[in-house]
Every structure is written in C-alpha cells, then in structure tokens.
Design a protein around this nucleic acid. Sequence first.
DNA 1: ATTACATATCGAGAATTATCAATATATTAT
DNA 2: ATAATATATTGATAATTCTCGATATGTAAT
Lengths: 100, 100
Amino acid sequence: MSIVEMSKVLSNKARVDVLAWLKNPEKNFPPQVNVPNFDDGVCVCHIQNKLGLSQSTTSHYLSMMEKAGLLIGTRIGKWTYYKRNEEQIEKFIQSLSSEL
Amino acid sequence: MSIVEMSKVLSNKARVDVLAWLKNPEKNFPPQVNVPNFDDGVCVCHIQNKLGLSQSTTSHYLSMMEKAGLLIGTRIGKWTYYKRNEEQIEKFIQSLSSEL
DNA sequence: ATTACATATCGAGAATTATCAATATATTAT
DNA sequence: ATAATATATTGATAATTCTCGATATGTAAT
C-alpha cells in the first residue's frame, strides 16, 4: 500500500477515529454480548453506533480499512469483528519514516 | 496539523512526489540560474516543469504544502524557492507514531 | 511609468469521495 | 422452509478535491 493510497484512507475523521478507538476497546465500547472479550476486535454494530453513520457507510469504511491493511476483520456467526492490524500499521509508519 | 488534515495533503501523488524530489534537489532538478545553490530550495518553475501540471495548480499545491508545514517557501526577487521543512515533517511522523 | 516575467489567487467544470437508502447475502432461530 | 438479524453490496446524490485558464500581484528591467 503506497503512501498516497494509505493517506486517502487516513484522510477521513471517522476512519482515524475508529483506529484510535480500537486501541482501547474496553474503554471505548460497551461489553460484547456474543463473545467473551475483545480478542477478535469490536462488533460492527458497536462501531456504527459510536460513529453515528449509516450501516452501509460504516461497513464500507471498515472493509476499506481492512483492504488497506489497517484492520483485521473476523466473522463469527452473524457478526463481524474488527481489530487493529498492528503489524501493518507499524510497517506503514516505518515506510513513512523512510519515504517521506 | 491533525492526522486527517495532513493525510489530505499527502493523498495526492504530485504532492508526495515533490516531497520526495526535494530530498535530493541536485539529482532531481536542473541547476538553478538565479541563485548559486539549492540552499533555499527549488524554483517553482522547475517543480512545475517536472510535475507537468499547470502553473496555477503547481502554485496551489506548493502553498498548500507550506501551509501544512511540509515545505518552506522563500521569495528571492521574482522567484519563489521551496524546500522541505524537515523539522515539521519529523514532528508529523512522530505524532503518527503515537496517535495512529 | 511601462513592460516583461514569475508567482499567486479566482472562478468554474471535471473527477473523486462521502454518504445514504434500498437490496442482497450470510447466518441463526423457529 | 421461513423468518429474523447482522453485515455487505449496489446505485444514486451531495460534498469535496482536482485542475485548468484567466486575472491579479509583486518584482525587475527599460
């Protein structure tokens, strides 16, 4: 993922907010109902509630962020959980450090 | 400058190219005519030539980058020279490291 | 003062991104 | 099988960004 393409993903407050919230799910989201913890991330519906955006926009943003390598999505039953992809986020920061 | 605002500036190939070219002006631009070296940066007209964009777009992008803190512009006579603002670029990378 | 040139700003249309409602798909419960 | 629920995808409009030509401003030469 190039700097330009990654920057496009990061040039939106909602998406940067999600990334920040997912640093500390316990603090930023209510307890999950259908799984015991946040190990696989946060349920889409919780993220949508907090964003205050429509379901379709929320889903779109999350999959865009996954495609960019910022998030990891996991489907469990009817639900999809998203968490940060720390490895890739770190790689991006490294590439910025050297390329920018 | 927030991550979102800075990312907007970086989400364009032309602007990221300029930033990269200015890392090594001697290599990426012809010698300057009206000043002896690249100490104050590169003349707008050289950047415009290399970008292949219109004069107005080039000027717009450069001032946008200066406003974001990525570049430093210096007017000398009729010409304006732009160079990288290394201090601010480094600060941005640091803030990404902690906030992202 | 006038002209010439480099850059900046303005105004407008084209291209892209944001965002929604509607619909489709996947999964579970009945 | 059917219904219910969560998420994904599609199609459309609104908002933003891109990009240009035209014009304005600043500086130097005549």
